[in-house]
Design a protein around this nucleic acid. Structure first.
Length: 744
DNA sequence: GGGCCGTCGCTTTTT
DNA sequence: GCGACGGCCC
C-alpha cells in the first residue's frame, strides 16, 4: 500500500521518497529522518514503481547502517530483500572487483590489507627503494600515497616538488608492485581500482551502468574524489542518483573526503531536484540551539532553519573537572543518578571524546563503579596481537603469496627462523624469480633452498604445515583448522610467553576462543569468504543495540547514531578543537562540525565537560583552557557557567573592548585576530593580587590546590578561585581562608 | 638466532 | 606509559 509507505512522513520526506526519475539531492539536517527517507524510498521503488531490486544500489556509511537499512526495508516490504546492492563504498567495490577480477590485476580471492599490513608493505618498499625509514616516517609516506590514491593519482602520474615528494615518488611504485604481487588491495585501492576498471573497460562500465538503474548514496558530504567519480560513472546514463547529505556533518577531510561534493553535485547535475529536510525529530529545542550556536560560526555553509516540535528541554550542563579522573567520576555518577531518577537504561547513554586515548579515564571510572560499558574502537578485537597472528596463518593458508602474513608468522611462535634466514629466503625467491607460493611449495616438497641446520628443518616443517592446512581448509571445517594450527604451533605456550601476567594469558586465550566462535558462525563458507568479510568490519558495526551498556566512542564514530543522554568529554582548547587544527581554518571548521555532530546526537540531555588539567603520556598537563566553542553557547541554554569558562568569557569581553578602542584610533587587525585566535591575553589588574593563577596553595581543610584566578574585591581583600585536588573547585575570600602559598 | 634492555616517539579522527 | 625498534651480549 502506497499510503502505508508514506504514513508518518512529513511533506518534504514524502516528496523525497516519491520523486520520480532523475537526480535528487536531499539536504538533511541531523535527526531529520534521512534514514527513514532512504529506506522508504528503496521500498517505494521496489513496490510502487516496480523496480527490479537487483537494479538498486544503496551506499551507506557503515556496514551497521547497511544492515539496519536492510531489515527496515524488509519489514516495510514484509519480505526478504534480495538482490539490492547494499553496503559501504568499500564493501560494494570489493564485491564488484571480485566478480570482475579477470579484468583486474588481482584474482577473485584477493586480500584486503589494513593499516598495519600497509605499514609492513611500506617498510619493505622503503627498504627496497633504499629510503632510510628511520629518517622518513613510514606512516607519513603511507599517508601521502593514500592521499594520492584518493585523488586517483597512479604511481606513474605522481609528482610532488619537494624532497619528501621525491621520496614518495620512489616508494609508491614499489609499494603498489608488492600489493599486486601479494594479490592484495588496500582500502584506497578498493575505490581507485574500481574507478579505473569502469573508466578503462567499456564493456564492464556499460554493463554496470545499464544494470544499476537506481543509485542511492547516504552521507554524501563524506565522499572523497574516488567515491564521487564512482557515483558519476555508475549513475549514467539514467542519472537516477539520490544523494543525501549535510555539509555541516562533514568530518572526514583527513581521509580525502570533501564536503563540497554536495555543491559539486549541484554543478554536475544542474537539473537535480533539491529537497530540504529541516524538521528535527530527535532533539529538544535546547540541544538544537546549542548545535546552531556552534555551527553558525562556520562561514562556508548554507544556513538551515532546523526546528523541532520538542520545544524547551533541559538546559545543557557544563562541568569543570579538576582532571580526567574527576571528569570520569562525574560522568559515571551522573549516569547512575539519571538512571535512578528518570528510569533510563545504560544503553541510553553515550560518552564521546575527540581522541581514543581519552577513553581510558572514562573506562577506569566505569570499572571502579561497576558500570557496564562497551568501548567502540580503540584497540579492537582484530588488532590484538594473538588474533592478528592467527589471522595471518589463515591468510597465508588462503594465499601463499601473502608476504606480509608470511613475514609475520614464519617465526611466530619461535621456531628458529631468524632475520638472516628470512633475508636469505627472500634473496633466493627474488634470484629465481619465484612467486612466494612457488618457493614455499619447492621447500615443502624437499627441493633445494639456501637455509641449513635448524632453520632449514623448521622451514620445511612450516611449509609442509601450510599446505596441509590448505587441504584442511578446502575440506570446509574452519574451527577444526584453527584447532590444528593452535595445537601444531604450540600456540598456547606462546600465549603464555608473550603475556606479562597469568590474567593476560587467560585474556588472550579467551580471544582465541572468541575467534573460534566467530569461525563457527561462518560454517559453510570458505576460508576466503570469511577473510573477505572480516576485512571490512568497522568498530561501529559491532554495536549490539540490545546490550544494556553505556557506549564509549569517538565523535567520529558517533555519526549517524543517537542517544537520549550524551556526554561530550574533554571540551578543551587543544583537544576540541584539536591543537593540530589551530593554524588551519579549514581544520578549525571541521572541528566545529565534529562538535556539531556530537551535540546533535543527543535526544534529551547534553553534558559538556572539560578539565583543568589532563594527563598526557605520563606528565600531568594543564592548565587547560575551556574550548573556545563553549564561549559560543548563549548563557540561557546552559545551567551554571563554571569558573574557568566564566573567566575566559570575561577576558574575551575585555579583550574585545580593548581592540575595539584600538580600532577607533588605528585599525590593528593583526592584533585583533591574534586575540580572537587565543582569546587569553592576561587580564591587567589595577593592583597586583597576592594570589596568582597556577600557584600551588595549601588549605587546612581542602588540602593542596592550584589557583585558577584571583580578583581584588577591595584594597585589602581578594577573591581566590582554587581548584583542589580532592575537594574540587572553591571560591574563597583571602581574608577568611587560610591559604598558604606553596610555590609559584 | 634469541633475549634483554634502553631509547624514542607518540595521538587526532577511520573504511 | 607503552609499544616499536635497535644494539648488545649470550
Amino acid at each position: 500500500m502506497m499510503t502505508e509507505l508514506l504514513a508518518g512522513l512529513n511533506p518534504q520526506q514524502q516528496e523525497a521518497v516519491t520523486t520520480g526519475d532523475g537526480p535528487v539531492l536531499v539536504l538533511a539536517g541531523p535527526g531529520s529522518g534521512k534514514t527513514r527517507v532512504l529506506t522508504h524510498r528503496v521500498a517505494y521503488l521496489i513496490r510502487e514503481v516496480g523496480v527490479y531490486p537487483g537494479s538498486v544500489m544503496a551506499v551507506t556509511f557503515t556496514n551497521k547502517a547497511a544492515n539496519e537499512m536492510r531489515s527496515r526495508v524488509e519489514s516495510l516490504l514484509e519480505s526478504r530483500l534480495t538482490g539490492v546492492q547494499l553496503g559501504t563504498f568499500h564493501a560494494i567495490c570489493a564485491r564488484l572487483l571480485r566478480r570482475e577480477s579477470q579484468h583486474t590485476p588481482y584474482t577473485a580471492d584477493f586480500l584486503i590489507y589494513d593499516r598495519d599490513d600497509q605499514l609492513a608493505v611500506i617498510k619493505q618498499a622503503m627498504a627496497e627503494a633504499e629510503v632510510n625509514s628511520s629518517k622518513m616516517r613510514p606512516g607519513r609516506v603511507l599517508g601521502a600515497i593514500s592521499a594520492a590514491k584518493n585523488e586517483l593519482i597512479t604511481p606513474e602520474k605522481f609528482s610532488a616538488p619537494t624532497y619528501f615528494g621525491e621520496v614518495v615518488k620512489r616508494v609508491y611504485p614499489r609499494y603498489q608492485e608488492i600489493l599486486v604481487a601479494n594479490n592484495a588491495l588496500d582500502f584506497d585501492d578498493l575505490l581507485m581500482q574500481m574507478v579505473f576498471l569502469l573508466q578503462n573497460n567499456d564493456e564492464v562500465r556499460e554493463r554496470y551502468q545499464r544494470y544499476y538503474e537506481y543509485l542511492l548514496v547516504d552521507e554524501f558530504q563524506d565522499t572523497n574524489m574516488a567515491q564521487y567519480q564512482l557515483v558519476l560513472l555508475l549513475s549514467k546514463p539514467q542519472n537516477n542518483v539520490f544523494a543525501v547529505g549535510d555539509e555541516d556533518q562533514g568530518i572526514y577531510a583527513f581521509r580525502g573526503a570533501d564536503y563540497r561534493n554536495v555543491m559539486h553535485f549541484r554543478r554536475d547535475f544542474p537539473d537535480a531536484k533539491v529537497i530540504l529536510l529541516e524538521q528535527n525529530y530527535r532533539s529538544t529545542q535546547v540541544v538544537l540551539d546549542v548545535a546552531r550556536a556552534v555551527i553558525s560560526k562556520n562561514t562556508q555553509r548554507t544556513p538551515k532553519a532546523l526546528f523541532t516540535e520538542r520545544g524547551g528541554g533541559v538546559r545543557v550542563t557544563l562541568y569543570e573537572a579538576y582532571d580526567e579522573r574527576e571528569e570520569g567520576t562525574f560522568i559515571v555518577e551522573r549516569i547512575e543518578d539519571l538512571r535512578r531518577e528518570h528510569g533510563y537504561d545504560y544503553k541510553d547513554f553515550a560518552v564521546m571524546y575527540r581522541t581514543n586515548a581519552q577513553s581510558r579515564a572514562i573506562e577506569d571510572a566505569c570499572v571502579a563503579m561497576n558500570l557496564p560499558y562497551r568501548l567502540v574502537g580503540g584497540v579492537g578485537f582484530y588488532k590484538r596481537r594473538e588474533i592478528k597472528d592467527l589471522l595471518a596463518y589463515l591468510r597465508l593458508i588462503n594465499n601463499a603469496n601473502d608476504t606480509v602474513s608470511f613475514t609475520r608468522i614464519v617465526n611466530v611462535p619461535k621456531r628458529g627462523i631468524g632475520k638472516k634466514s628470512i633475508a636469505d629466503f627472500r634473496k633466493w625467491v627474488a634470484k629465481n624469480n619465484f612467486t612466494q607460493e612457488l618457493a614455499l611449495s619447492v621447500i615443502a616438497e624437499g627441493g633445494e633452498f639456501p637455509l641449513s641446520g635448524k632453520a632449514a628443518r623448521s622451514m620445511t616443517e612450516f611449509t609442509k604445515n601450510i599446505f596441509a592446512w590448505r587441504k584442511q581448509a578446502d575440506d570446509g571445517d574452519l574451527t577444526l583448522l584453527l584447532d590444528d594450527i593452535v595445537a601444531r604451533t604450540g600456540f598456547n605456550l606462546y600465549l603464555h610467553d608473550i603475556s606479562d601476567s597469568e590474567n593476560q594469558t587467560i585474556e588472550r586465550s579467551e580471544n582465541v576462543r572468541e575467534l573460534r566462535g566467530l569461525l563457527k558462525e561462518y560454517e559453510g563458507e570458505t576460508l576466503g569468504e570469511f577473510l573477505a568479510e572480516i576485512a571490512l568490519v568497522a568498530d561501529v558495526d559491532e554495536i549490539d543495540d540490545n546490550d544494556d551498556k553505556v557506549t564509549l566512542l569517538t565523535l567520529h564514530s558517533a555519526k549517524g547514531l543517537e542517544f537520549p543522554v550524551v556526554f561530550i568529554s574533554g571540551v578543551e582548547d587543544g583537544l576540541l578543537p584539536h591543537i593540530r587544527s589551530f593554524d588551519d581554518s579549514e581544520g578549525m571548521a571541521e572541528e566545529r562540525r565534529l562538535m556539531y555532530v556530537g551535540v546533535t546526537r543527543a535526544m534529551d540531555e547534553l553534558y559538556l565537560s572539560y578539565t583543568f588539567r589532563r594527563a598526557m603520556y605520563n606528565a600531568t598537563g594543564g592548565p587547560n583552557e575551556p574550548s573556545r566553542f563553549l564561549e559560543d553557547i548563549p548563557a540561557h541554554l546552559t545551567k551554571d557557567i563554571p569558573p574557568m569558562l566564566a573567566q575566559k568569557q570575561n577576558q574575551r569581553a575585555f579583550a574585545d573592548e580593548i581592540s575595539w578602542e584600538t580600532d577607533w584610533d588605528a585599525p590593528r587587525l593583526g592584533q585583533r585576530m591574534r586575540d580572537d585566535a587565543h582569546a587569553a591575553t592576561p587580564k591587567p589588574e589595577p593592583k597586583p593580587t597576592l594570589f596568582k593563577s597556577n600557584q600551588r596553595v595549601y588549605h587546612g581543610i581542602f588540602g593542596e590546590g592550584i589557583v585558577i584566578e584571583s580578583k581584588r574585591v577591595d584594597d585589602d581583600d581578594e577573591e581566590v578561585v582554587v581548584s583542589f585536588a580532592e575537594g574540587g573547585i572553591k571560591r574563597l575570600m583571602a581574608s577568611f581562608a587560610k591559604l598558604t602559598i606553596l610555590d609559584g
